[in-house]
Structures are given as C-alpha cells and as structure tokens.
Design a protein around this nucleic acid. Structure first.
Lengths: 165, 165
DNA sequence: GTCGATTGTCTTGACATCGAGAGATCCCTC
DNA sequence: GAGGGATCTCTCGATGTCAAGACAATCGAC
C-alpha cells in the first residue's frame, strides 16, 4: 500500500533529483506515524477522561512500584519535559486528586510526588485501553514482523537513550 | 544495545504481569524516536535560522514545484495542523518575507500562498542540512535494514494515510 | 434565478509548553 | 565548620497550538 511518504519522496525526487532523499523513507515515516499515534492515544484516553500528559505522569509513577512515588526531577527525565512544565502538571494533577505532594524526608529542597489510589486506578484503566488500541494498529504485522520492527527501531533509539541528550 | 523502552517494558512486566505489553515494544519506540528526531531537527534547522514549523510549510510549497504555490487548505492537509495554526504560520512567514499571499484568481474566498525566492533558497538549504543529519542517525543500519524498516513502517502508516483521519 | 448547504479562510480565547532565572538546600573541599 | 559550586523545585513571561465559531463566496437543487 502506498502512503503519504511515498508521495512525499516522489515529489522530492522530481523537484530535487540531485539530492539523495532515502533517509526520509524511514525517518519521515517515524515522525508521521508518531503524529497519528498521538491522535489515537488522545482518543483512547478520552474514554477515561485523561489527557496524554496526565497519562505520562501517572504511569511513570505507577511503573515505579509501591509506594508509587518519585521526585519531580525523576519525572522530568522520564517524560522529557522541562521543569516548569512538570511543576504545572503536578499542580493540576494534585487539584484533580490523582497525585499528592509530600516533603522529601531526606532532602529539604526536594518533594516527592505520590499517586493516590484513584490515580493508580485511572492509570491502570487507561493503560489497558491504550494497549487494546495499539494492538489494533499493529494487527497489520505478524508477530515475527513486529519483533523485527522493534529490533530495528531499538538500533536507532539506543544511541539517544544511552548517550545522554 | 538496551534502550529506554526495554527498561520501560521490564518495569511494566514487573508491575503488571497480567498485561500483554508487547505493543509497547514497537509503538513506544516510535513515539520516543520521534521526540528525539524533533530535537535533532530543531538543532539542524537552527543553523539556517529556521524553526521546524517554518521548514514544514516552506518545503510543502517547495515540493509543489513551480510556481511554488498552494492554498492554505492544501497546506493544512500536508502539515496536519488546524486552520487557525496555519493562518498564524502564514502570517509570520509573510512578515519574514519567505512567502506571500495572493488572491486565488478562480475562487474569491480563496488565497494562494507562494514561496518567495528567499523562501525557496532557505528551504533548499535546510533540506540538505536535515538529510545530512538523518543520514548520520541511520548509519546504525545497513542499506538493506533501512529498506526493511521503511517497508514495515509503511504497513503501519498506510491505513492512516489512506483512510482519511 | 434563488435559497440553503457547503467550502475556505480567518478570528478569538483557552491552554500547555518552553526557556531563563530565582531561591533554598545540599555536598565537598579546605 | 565555613565557603562556593552544584542540585532541586518553582516562578514568570512569551509563544505556538487547538477548538469553536464567524464571515464570505461558491455550488447544487429546484
């Protein structure tokens, strides 16, 4: 099946035959697919009355395991947002009763963000919904192909994730 | 090489052993890689004093071929943003002298956005820079692997691009 | 021709994000 | 134990985006 990137690449080859645009075959598809996924995620979460950014924060805490608490700084590195953004997110999640701020007993500069019981339930429900949606998208591929795809992508993400940046 | 998604998946398997989180192996990598690419693109464009959104609009016009003009509506569908956003972008690009608005001779409701000579040059330069950067990222893979990866990704993007949504 | 629905663009208000920097606390060296 | 740099969180202003709706022109049916 042809996709938008095939058309994009064909247009570039017509307009700039001097350039090698092969990299776009991979990376433009990654960017565009990510955009489509964002929309799909937003829809999936709407059923649970959660925004994508709320899901990101709540699930980071959920993954941490009991007692479901992390510092704002740890949340920063997991969600790849700036500190100002994280302060704002914690404020709003606190107002909604999904997380609470506690003083860090070991560092008086610090704060711990803890998931409330409701926050934990909402995160669990939204995750299940997201996985259902993602399974539907991936049904295009066989199990073997999904494994290959994951492996190839890991080759590309590895350098970013391990050399900090 | 292990990446952040390996750690994320391992955490979910520990916390939610009842769930099948295999879809994350593929789609979380897509989302995270797209985020890293956004940062890399921003850096690459900074050398040419262009923002990513400026690049998106200018190159859509560049790809259209001479006389390098499209309606705002056509630009919407190519860049996946809303109409309000596109109006704002065209305004700012016009102020910078990279595009100009012309009345559509065939539809008095309509407008045509045309690339200026400077806009065309800037788009061409930025594209070359972007391709260099992308080639470096993709050097992790062989030519054959890049082809496989592109093919697998096309299977996933195809449904989004062809069934409108 | 005329009316209603549709199309194409722009306007407005709300909102989430970023970047830079402030203030408080911690840690290491002397 | 005192000083200076590093770390942690929050504040503030600017900005880009979205969603909903306004307005004008077009198209189709009668």
């Amino acid at each position: 099946m042809e996709d938008e990137v095939d058309r994009l690449v064909a247009a570039w080859r017509r307009e700039r035959p001097d350039l090698d645009v092969e990299p776009l075959e991979v990376l433009s598809r990654v960017s565009r697919l990510a955009r489509h996924l964002d929309r799909a995620r937003r829809l999936a979460f709407a059923e649970h009355h959660l925004e994508p950014w709320e899901f990101d924060v709540l699930t980071a805490l959920r993954r941490a395991g009991t007692p479901y608490q992390l510092s704002p700084g740890q949340l920063l590195t997991q969600t790849l947002v700036t500190s100002g953004t994280m302060t704002n997110r914690i404020d709003r999640l606190t107002k909604k009763g999904l997380v609470e701020r506690l003083p860090d007993p070991n560092d008086r500069r610090g704060v711990l963000v803890r998931l409330t019981d409701e926050g934990r339930d909402r995160a669990d429900q939204a995750l299940a919904g997201l996985l259902d949606q993602e399974r539907a998208i991936l049904a295009e591929l066989s199990r073997t192909q999904r494994g290959e795809l994951a492996g190839l992508l890991r080759r590309l993400t590895g350098p970013f994730d391990n050399i900090p940046g």
